[in-house]
């Protein structure tokens, strides 16, 4: 066993290096005092970071992205709660096809989602804007939320809710006092993950954005200008750090949830 584990471990380390290669380079170029993104490195600088707040278009795109991502997270989590609850607790006609259809965006190339929504918006002559991006993002984030919340609602013992109801609580107060606290870790994970997906999503935003681009759409435009790249690297570094913090919080929430339900950690997101 240990022999095989040995070369597998070596392979695993190499693979992690492959996975992390771009992310390791990111801060290196972010602090490098040169507009050419290549080795050898020049001097250390933090000027690319200080340039971020002085680029109004960038700041605006960050604001747009944050608004879009927060709205998307809330909407898709709410829709996810409805669907996951209905899926875990109730039976109704056409349950499997309806649930399957809601999960469909998970297996649809994003470009298809983007152009088909664009076609409808064009046909209806509706203006593009942040709200169209929110709708598109909510569509693709909801299946992720459902996947996360399914396990939260599925792990919930039905007799806990029955017990509360039996002890005199109403349906609503049962939900508030028992269900909600117990699925809260799942809700937090769903919010964070849909927020992260929306913040990073490019192709739908690219097609559906109006005059106010989201951050990835703005970055896409900047990648053509070499002199703008270091600022992008600096921003990317901040985003990576932010993502790691958010994901760590999500992971801790998930583990708490498992511990609270008295279960065993079997590992892993999604």
């Amino acid at each position: 066993m240990t022999g095989r584990g040995g070369w597998l471990r070596g392979y695993a380390v190499l693979y992690l290096l492959f996975l992390y290669a771009p992310i390791i380079l990111l801060p290196i170029f972010a602090f490098n005092d040169s507009t050419i993104i290549a080795f050898p490195l020049s001097d250390f600088t933090t000027k690319w970071f200080t340039e971020i707040p002085n680029t109004p278009a960038l700041v605006r795109s960050v604001q747009t992205s944050l608004i879009v991502a927060v709205t998307t997270a809330v909407l898709s989590t709410l829709l996810g709660i409805c669907a996951a609850r209905a899926g875990a607790r109730y039976s109704f006609p056409f349950k499997t096809p309806v649930m399957g259809f809601i999960m469909l965006p998970l297996v649809l190339p994003e470009i298809i989602v983007a152009v088909s929504m664009l076609v409808v918006l064009m046909a209806l002559d509706l203006p593009l804007g942040s709200w169209t991006v929110v709708l598109g993002h909510t569509l693709i984030c909801t299946p992720f939320c459902i996947a996360i919340l399914n396990s939260a609602f599925g792990n919930l013992d039905v007799s806990l809710e029955e017990a509360a109801f039996d002890l005199g609580e109403s349906r609503w107060s049962t939900f508030r006092l028992i269900t909600l606290p117990l699925v809260m870790p799942g809700i937090i994970s769903a919010l964070l993950i849909s927020f992260t997906i929306s913040l990073d999503e490019f192709i739908i935003a690219f097609f559906l954005t109006g005059t106010e681009p989201t951050l990835p759409v703005y970055l896409w435009g900047q990648l053509r200008f070499p002199q703008k790249i270091p600022v992008v690297m600096a921003l990317g570094t901040i985003l990576v750090a932010l993502s790691v913090v958010l994901l760590t919080i999500a992971e801790i929430a998930r583990r708490r949830g498992i511990a609270r339900a008295g279960g065993k950690d079997t590992g892993g997101f999604l």
Binding site: L223, G236, S243, L247
Partner: peptide, 19 residues
Amino acid sequence: KSLWIFMITIPFWTSYLIR
């Protein structure tokens, strides 16, 4: 195990464009 899975998923959550 969950630490390893966590480590594997982290790069995936960083900006796709920039990667």
